[in-house]
Design a protein around this nucleic acid. Structure first.
Length: 958
RNA sequence: GGGCGCUUAGCUCAGCCGGGAGAGCGUCGCCCUUACAAGGCGAAGGUCGCAGGUUCGAUCCCUGCAGCGCCCA
C-alpha cells in the first residue's frame, strides 16, 4: 500500500473516523471482564445550543489525547459524551425564534413551548457532536447523554427529594439576584459586575424636629430613597457619633416617613459623605444591615415590579415608571426641593445577568435553596455545612481530589469557605421542574411525582395538588453528571466500573459553577469523590493575548482551521450578526490585514498538535496560527519520511520473517534515542505536560530520525559500496528504519490520530505488526536494555564533527554540492595536559561524516598536520582541518578564527575566575567543581589548538 | 480592599532539583542534493521587567517596586 505523493488531511480524516466509529473502537468494555483497569473522563457537557469554539476544541483535544493514550496503555477506557440542556440560554434562543414570528412563549403555553424546545433540540442539538467528530474525538457516542433525558431526570428528582427529606433543601423568602428581563432569579455566579461610570448623588435628609438641618448621605441609586429604612454611619466616626438614634425624614415620601440614624461597621467613613441610606429590600449590604439590627424595626419595603418598574409602594407620581426614568424624575424633584446637595461622577460596579445583559435587581422573593451553611438544622439534624460543604472541602484537603496545577485548590477553598446557600429555582420553563406539589392550603409536598407524593404524605385523591411552577438551576443537573450519566440511581455495571472517574478536564471559570458542586454531590450521594484529579487548562486567546469574542471580531472557528476558509467567507462570518453593526468595518479591515489569503486548511492533526504544544502549565494560551502552520509542515514531514521508508522497505526483506540481522552504529543510535523519547513522552502524559510530549515527539521525528538517521541510511540503502556490509546489515537497517517509524507512529497517535493511522496501516506489516487499527495497539514504553550509551557517545562525536565541518563550509561559502577534502587529527596530547586517550574514530563513523558533511575520504592523522591556508575547528577531542586552497578567500576564515578565539578567551577567563575562588572549591558540590575543571581543560586545549593553527594557518605570511 | 498569576530573542512560548540561556515562527545568506521547497544547510538576534537580599554561585529561592491580566468583595 503506497501513500499518495502529497499529504491531504481532508481525505484521510473522514475515512478513518468513520472506520473507527463503525468498528466500535470508542466503546469501553462494559463488563470489565478481561479488560484493563478502568479509565474514564466525563466530557464537560457543552450547551446543547452551542457550537464548537476554540475553548472546546482545546479542552476536547486534551481529553482525547488522554483517552487515546490510556486506551493504548491497555486501560478499559470510557470517554462519556453528552450535552447540557442549558435552561436559560436555550429558552432564550427558542423564544427569540418565536418572537420573530410575532408571538411570545405565553401564546404557546408551557406544554407547547417546551415541546418546541425539544423539537429544536432534536433538529439542531447534535451539531456539536458532529464537530467533535471532526476533531477526532474518540468518545463513546453510542451512549451519549443529555441532562434532560429520562435517566438523568430520574437522578435529579432522586437527589432533590433526598436532600429535601434530609432538610438540606428548603424554600425561603430571601434577597436574590433578579433578572428583570428574563424574569427569573439567577445565582451569584450568573451575575457579572463590571466597572461603569455613574453619578454619586448627595442628598440631605432633614432632621425630625429641625428640618432646616439634616444629614447628608451619598447614593448612586436615588430612586430607592423612597423605601429607605434607616440611615447608617460608622460607629467610630466622630462626625456622626452624636447623631445616632436621631430620626430623619425620608425625602419625597407621601405620607412622610421618619427613619432612625443607626451605627454599623459596614459603613466606610472615608467613602462619600461617610453616611449611607439603607434600603434593605434592594441591596445585599443593606439587607445584612437589616439582619444585624433586629431591634431597630427597619422596614423592608419592596419598590419594584418583576420587570423593574416602580410599584404601588412608590408615591403616585412615580408608579409604573421604569427604574431609570424614576431615577431621573426623583433627581429632578430633589433638586427642586433643594435637597440635592451635590452630584459627582463616580465609577462603580454594575451587576448584570450573564445571559441577558440586564442590570439585575436584588429582590425579595420565594426561592428554593440548597443549604450549604448550617452546622445543624433547627430540628437538630446536621445541616448543609456539615453534610455537604465540609466534606467537599475535606475531599481536596485530604488529597482525594487533586488539582493540576495544584494552586487552583486555593481558589476552590476560598469559594467554598465563604459559600452562600445555593439558590436552585429559576422562573423559566425549560428545565427540570421542581418536584414539589402544593395543596389548597399552601402546604408543600415533595416527591418524585404526584402519585409518589400522594402515597408518601397520605393525600387522598380529593386533595387537589398543584406542581411548583419553577425549574431547577441547570447546574443542579450538571452537578450529578459524573454518576447520573452512568445510570445512577440504578446500580448499573457501568456505574460500578467507572465511578469514580479518573480525571476532569476543564477551565478555571467553572470551578465554582461545576467542579465544586460535582464534588459536593459526588461525596454526598456516592460517598466517593467524582474524580481523582482536576486538570485545569487556560483560556484560548488570540495571537496577541486578547480574549476571543464576536464583538472584537477575532474569533477563530476550529473547523475553519481544519478545512480552511476563504477571506470573503471569513469576513462574512465575523461581521454578520454583530451586536453593534457599526463595528463591522473595523473588523473587516483587521481580518483582511491578519488573513490576506483567508486560512488554508491545516487538518485536524495539525490543530491537535498545536493545542498540545501550547498546553503548558495551565496558563492562558495565545493561539498563533503560525504554530499550526508549522505543525502542518510537521505532518508533511512525517508523511514524506514514511514515503521514504516505504520506498526502501516494501517488497524487501526487513527481517519481519526472521533472518540474521546486524545493526549499524546509526541503527543502534536511533533505537537508543527512541527509548529516551519514549520515556519522556510517557512522563509528560503522566504529568499532563502535553507541551513536553509534543516537543519530544517533534524532536524525535524531525531532528533525530529525519535529519540524521534517514540521511545515514541512504548510502547503504542506495547500494553505496562503502556501506555494502552484506545482507545481514542491510536487513538490520531496513528493519530499524521501519520499526522505529512504526513506533514513532504509535507514540504520536494520541496527539495526531489520523495521519498516524493512515501511515501505520502501510508500515505496520513491514515491522511485523498486525492489527486492524493503530488505536488499539500497545503504547510504546521505554526499554532500558535498548539504551546504548556507547552508540550515543560515538554518534555524538559524529554529529559534532559534521556540524563543525558544515559550519566551516557555510562560513567559507563552499557550495553545498561540492565534496571537499578533510583532515581529522587527534587525539593527541593537548597542550601540556595529559588528555584522555579517546578511541580512534570508528570506521563507520568516518563514512557517516563523509556522507553528511559531503567530504572526500577523510584522512586521519595521529599528529597535528600543519596544513597551510586551511580552516580548523575543534570538536570534542578532534581537530577538523579543511584545506581551503582554491575554495575560498582565506580572509573570511581569518576573521572567523579571530572571533572564535576571542570568545574562547572570554569563557576561559570566567571559568578561571570561578575555579580560583576558594569558596567555590570548598562549598560547591565536588561534581560541579570537577565539571568546571573539565570544562576549563577543554576550553584551554581548544584554544591552544586554534592558536597553533592560527600561527601555521591562514594568518601565516599575510 | 483580599487572593492568584504573568513579565526570557522581533512574535508565540519552554526552561525539571540553583551550577555552561533554548524551541517554533519570523529575519539574513547559500542550495530545486532522486522522502519532503509544506524542504535542506548555515548565520544573526537576549542586561532573563527593575532594585535589594540569601548563596561559593540566582532566569530559578526571598523581599520590595513597576507594568499587565484574572478571580472574589
Amino acid at each position: 500500500m503506497a501513500l499518495n505523493k502529497t499529504y491531504d488531511p481532508r481525505e484521510i480524516e473522514s475515512r478513518w473516523y468513520r472506520f473507527w466509529e463503525e468498528s466500535g473502537y470508542f466503546a469501553p468494555a462494559d463488563s470489565g471482564g478481561g479488560a484493563g483497569a478502568p479509565y474514564c473522563i466525563m466530557i464537560p457537557p457543552p450547551n446543547v445550543t452551542g457550537s464548537l469554539h476554540m475553548g472546546h476544541a482545546f479542552q476536547d483535544l486534551i481529553m482525547d489525547g488522554l483517552i487515546r493514550y490510556h486506551r493504548m496503555r491497555g486501560r478499559n477506557t470510557l470517554w462519556q459524551p453528552g450535552t447540557d440542556h442549558a435552561g436559560i440560554a436555550t429558552q432564550m434562543l427558542v423564544e427569540r425564534a418565536i418572537n420573530a414570528e410575532g408571538k411570545t412563549r405565553h401564546d404557546y403555553g408551557r406544554e407547547k413551548f417546551t415541546g418546541k424546545v425539544w423539537e429544536w433540540k432534536e433538529q439542531f442539538g447534535g451539531a456539536i457532536a458532529g464537530q467533535l467528530r471532526r476533531l477526532g474525538a474518540s468518545a463513546d457516542w453510542g451512549n451519549e447523554r443529555f441532562t434532560m433525558d429520562a435517566g438523568l431526570s430520574e437522578a435529579v428528582k432522586e437527589v432533590f427529594v433526598r436532600l429535601y427529606d434530609e432538610g438540606l433543601i428548603y424554600r425561603g423568602k430571601r434577597l436574590v439576584n433578579w433578572d428583570p428581563v428574563l424574569l427569573t432569579a439567577v445565582s451569584d455566579l450568573e451575575v457579572v459586575s463590571e466597572a461603569e461610570s455613574g453619578v454619586m448623588y448627595y442628598v440631605r435628609y432633614p432632621f425630625v424636629g429641625d428640618e432646616d438641618n439634616g444629614i447628608i448621605i451619598g447614593t448612586t441609586r436615588p430612586e430607592t430613597i423612597l423605601v429607605d429604612g434607616a440611615v447608617a454611619v460608622h460607629p467610630d466616626d466622630a462626625r456622626y457619633q452624636s447623631l445616632t438614634g436621631r430620626r430623619v425624614w425620608v425625602p419625597m415620601t407621601e405620607p412622610r416617613r421618619a427613619i432612625e440614624i443607626i451605627a454599623d461597621d459596614y459603613v466606610q467613613a472615608d467613602f462619600g459623605s461617610g453616611c449611607v441610606k439603607v434600603s434593605a429590600a434592594h441591596d445585599f449590604n443593606d439587607y445584612q444591615v437589616y439582619l444585624r439590627h433586629p431591634d431597630k424595626d427597619i422596614p423592608l419595603i419592596v419598590l419594584f415590579t418583576p420587570d423593574a418598574k416602580m410599584n404601588d409602594n412608590a408615591p403616585r407620581q412615580y408608579r409604573g415608571l421604569d427604574r431609570y426614568d424614576a431615577r431621573k424624575q426623583i433627581v429632578r424633584d430633589l433638586r427642586g426641593r433643594g435637597l440635592l446637595i451635590k452630584e459627582e461622577p463616580h465609577q462603580y460596579k454594575l451587576p448584570r445577568g450573564d445571559r441577558s445583559g440586564a442590570v439585575v435587581e436584588p429582590m425579595l422573593t420565594d426561592q428554593w435553596y440548597v443549604d450549604l451553611t448550617r452546622e445543624t438544622l433547627a430540628d437538630g439534624r446536621p445541616g448543609g455545612k456539615t453534610r455537604i460543604t465540609d466534606p467537599a472541602i475535606a475531599a481536596v484537603r485530604d488529597g482525594c481530589v487533586q488539582f493540576v496545577p495544584e494552586n487552583w485548590s486555593k481558589t476552590y477553598y476560598q469559594w467554598l469557605e465563604n459559600v452562600e446557600d445555593w439558590c436552585i429555582s429559576r422562573q423559566i420553563w425549560w428545565g427540570h421542574r421542581i418536584p414539589a406539589w402544593y395543596d389548597d392550603d399552601g402546604n408543600v409536598h415533595v416527591g418524585a411525582d404526584e402519585a409518589a407524593v400522594r402515597e408518601k404524605y397520605g393525600l387522598p385523591a380529593s386533595c387537589k395538588l398543584r406542581q411548583d411552577e419553577d425549574v431547577l438551576d441547570t447546574w443542579f443537573s450538571s452537578a450529578l453528571w459524573p454518576f447520573s450519566t452512568l445510570g445512577w440511581p440504578q446500580q448499573t455495571e457501568r456505574l460500578q466500573t467507572f465511578y469514580p472517574t479518573s480525571v476532569l478536564v476543564t477551565g478555571f471559570d467553572i470551578i465554582f459553577f461545576w467542579v465544586a458542586r460535582m464534588i459536593m454531590m459526588g461525596v454526598k450521594f456516592m460517598h466517593q469523590v467524582p474524580f481523582h484529579q482536576v486538570y485545569i487548562h487556560g483560556l484560548v486567546r488570540d495571537a496577541h493575548g486578547r480574549k476571543m469574542s464576536k464583538s472584537k471580531g477575532n474569533v477563530l472557528d476550529p473547523i475553519d482551521l481544519i478545512d480552511g476558509i476563504s477571506l470573503a467567507a471569513l469576513v462574512e462570518k465575523r461581521t454578520s450578526g454583530l451586536m453593534r453593526p457599526q463595528d463591522a468595518a473595523a473588523i473587516e479591515k483587521q481580518t483582511r490585514r491578519d488573513f490576506p489569503d483567508g486560512i488554508p486548511g491545516f487538518g485536524a492533526d495539525a490543530l491537535r498538535f498545536t493545542f498540545a504544544a501550547l498546553a503548558s502549565t495551565g496558563r492562558d494560551i495565545n493561539f498563533d496560527l503560525g504554530r499550526t502552520e508549522g505543525y502542518r509542515n510537521f505532518c508533511n514531514k512525517i508523511w514524506n519520511a514514511a514515503r521514504f521508508v516505504l520506498m526502501n522497505t516494501e517488497g524487501e526483506d526487513c527481517g519481519q520473517n526472521g533472518g540474521r540481522m546486524e545493526l549499524s552504529l546509526a541503527d543502534r543510535w536511533i533505537i537508543s534515542t527512541l527509548q529516551r523519547s519514549q520515556a519522556e513522552v510517557n512522563r509528560a502524559f503522566g504529568n499532563y505536560r502535553f507541551d513536553h510530549a509534543a516537543k519530544a515527539i517533534y524532536e524525535l521525528v524531525w531532528h533525530h530520525y529525519c535529519d540524521w538517521y534517514v540521511e545515514l541510511c541512504k548510502p547503504a540503502l542506495n547500494g553505496d559500496r562503502r556501506h555494502q556490509n552484506g545482507e545481514q546489515q542491510l536487513r538490520g537497517t531496513r528493519h530499524t528504519l521501519v520499526r522505529v517509524m512504526e513506533t514513532m507512529l504509535r507514540l504520536a497517535h494520541p496527539i495526531m490520530p489520523f495521519i498516524t493511522e493512515e501511515i501505520w496501516q502501510a508500515v505496520a506489516p513491514l515491522a511485523g505488526r498486525t492489527g486492524p487499527t493503530i488505536m488499539l495497539q500497545p503504547y510504546p514504553l521505554e526499554q532500558p536494555d535498548e539504551v546504548d550509551e556507547a552508540a550515543e557517545r560515538e554518534m555524538r562525536r559524529v554529529i559534532d564533527i559534521v556540524l563543525a565541518i558544515r559550519k566551516l563550509r557555510g562560513e567559507n561559502r563552499v557550495p553545498p554540492g561540492r565534496r571537499i577534502p578533510v583532515l581529522i587529527a587527534g587525539p593527541g596530547p593537548a597542550n601540556g595536559r595529559a588528555s584522555k586517550q579517546a578511541p580512534a574514530l570508528h570506521a563507520e563513523a568516518a563514512v557517516y561524516i563523509e556522507t553528511l558533511a559531503k567530504t572526500e575520504a577523510i584522512q586521519m592523522s595521529g599528529a597535528r598536520p600543519s596544513a597551510a591556508n586551511s580552516a580548523m575547528l575543534v570538536a570534542g577531542d578532534m581537530q577538523i582541518i579543511l584545506p581551503l586552497d582554491g575554495l575560498a578567500d582565506a580572509q573570511s576564515e581569518i576573521k572567523r578564527a579571530a572571533r572564535e578565539l576571542k570568545q574562547l578567551e572570554r569563557l576561559i577567563a570566567r571559568s578561571t575566575e570561578k575555579l580560583s575562588n576558594r569558596d567555590f572549591i570548598e562549598k560547591a558540590p565536588a561534581v560541579v567543581v570537577e565539571k568546571e575543571r573539565a570544562r576549563l581543560g577543554d576550553l584551554r586545549s581548544k584554544k591552544s589548538q586554534l592558536g597553533a593553527q592560527w600561527e601555521g594557518g591562514p594568518g601565516n605570511g599575510r
